[in-house]
Design a protein around this nucleic acid. Structure first.
Lengths: 112, 112
DNA sequence: TAAGAATATTCTATATTGCGAATATACACA
DNA sequence: TGTGTATATTCGCAATATAGAATATTCTTA
């Protein structure tokens, strides 16, 4: 596989590499929601949510539909939900390691 | 799902969010390899590879086994390969969008 | 048209990441 | 023990990412 393709995949993973963006995809799992509803469900700053949505949009991960005053977001490709599902299985089969990691992550998520 | 769990998931995605690290997992798909072999296959700097391996290690994604002079790496949990497989499907069902993205990514991968 | 609501963008400060160069460590074997 | 090979770590710098504050844009409705 060429470098370019890997860079694309990496950019998708990168889009998924933030807790808020994972949360966004999880609340969109059951169907589209307005930006405002997402914001209320997640309890984040308006500007911050908008930035995260911009990232998901730029990677074509979510679609947005304007309706009057509001913008409704939805997951563009359901296969992405499978990615999240498999990750859930990954997490489950990894429980022991994960618990340890959670503790580390709690202090600092970085390697260095 | 709690924030902590999302942070954990995000940290796994973050580990996958670099082309070199994706490449590492791909060459490890068929079994363990020494760091040197990985380096030769990928053609990256020794120090750089070691840094990427450190990230994968810190997330418990790879296991390492020391044998004399060398360190052999392998994928710790095969479910992770499924994640990559699903991503491949994601890519395939997304071809049109992806091609467009590849062009953009070619110039600059960032949103801003 | 004016005011208000929903969303996006820009700006600024800070933190994190990624790279190569240099250095350190660990092991093998003469 | 000394030398070479394999791997890891540290350092400094450039690039990127994230957050909140401020501002802009778009739409609705009085």
């Amino acid at each position: 596989m060429q470098e370019k393709l890997r860079t694309y995949k990496a950019s998708i993973f990168q889009a998924l590499s933030h807790p808020t963006r994972i949360a966004i995809l999880e609340v969109l799992r059951d169907g589209e929601l307005s930006a405002r509803s997402i914001q209320e469900k997640l309890g984040v700053e308006q500007a911050n949510l908008s930035q995260h949505l911009a990232i998901l949009r730029s990677r074509q991960i979510v679609a947005n539909r304007k309706d009057g005053n509001q913008v409704f977001y939805s997951i563009r490709n359901p296969v992405l939900l499978e990615v999240l599902d498999v990750m859930r299985r990954y997490f489950q089969t990894n429980l022991a390691d994960a618990i340890q990691m959670l503790e580390e992550v709690e202090c600092e998520a970085s390697v260095r």
